[in-house]
Amino acid sequence: MIRLDNISITVGTFHLPNVSLEIERGRYAILMGKTGCGKTSLLETICGLRKPSSGSVWLQDVDVTRYAPGDREIGYVPQDLALFPTYNVAEHLEFGLKLHKASPSQLKQRRDETAEILGITHLLRRPIDGLSGGEAQRVALGRAIAVEPSVLLLDEPLSALDEETRDEMLELLQSLKEATNVTTLHVTHNLAEAERLADCRYRLSDSVLEHVAID
């Protein structure tokens, strides 16, 4: 469950006042809105990377407003993916697991499971330099879900992909949604993505977050 209670965010001259939102456990929510309207800032606030000027963030019925980002059990895929340049694909999948002190057998099992789900087993030993857009996207997604987060935050994850790869990734996200049942907030500009994936939809417009009914 993701709940925002009257969250206000200030970034320089930009101000997003009193945003409230509730996404039930296991639901896949899509957040749409114009560029620069504060969608990424909202995700960063849920992650704990940005402090809200007021209000509170609740995840799985716990007020995490003052929690460090790593204590929130979040999987985050930023728009630019932000892969780790000095790590190979396997190390990306193992990164969070090592921090969570997984045993070597757990680490290997979870890494291989994640790679299998995402279809990147053949890439495990590859450096990230030569990955295609779709492969890099899968690695970023794998890094986020390997730790089995309670909440998944995706910031325009498919925006830089070509049509064919986008369709493949949409299918993958759909199967992930069914397989993991993780509460997800997915930011996108693309209506087709919203229609295909969303259990519920929100629009951020003129600093107001509104629920959009699904036909």
Binding site: A68, D71, G75, Y76, A82, F95
Partner: peptide
């Protein structure tokens, strides 16, 4: 160096120092 990668690492459980 893109600071975003460090941000992602922090969401995965890293402290700022890590």
């Amino acid at each position: 160096i893109n600071p975003r990668a460090e941000d992602v690492a922090r969401t995965l459980g890293c402290t700022r120092l890590q």
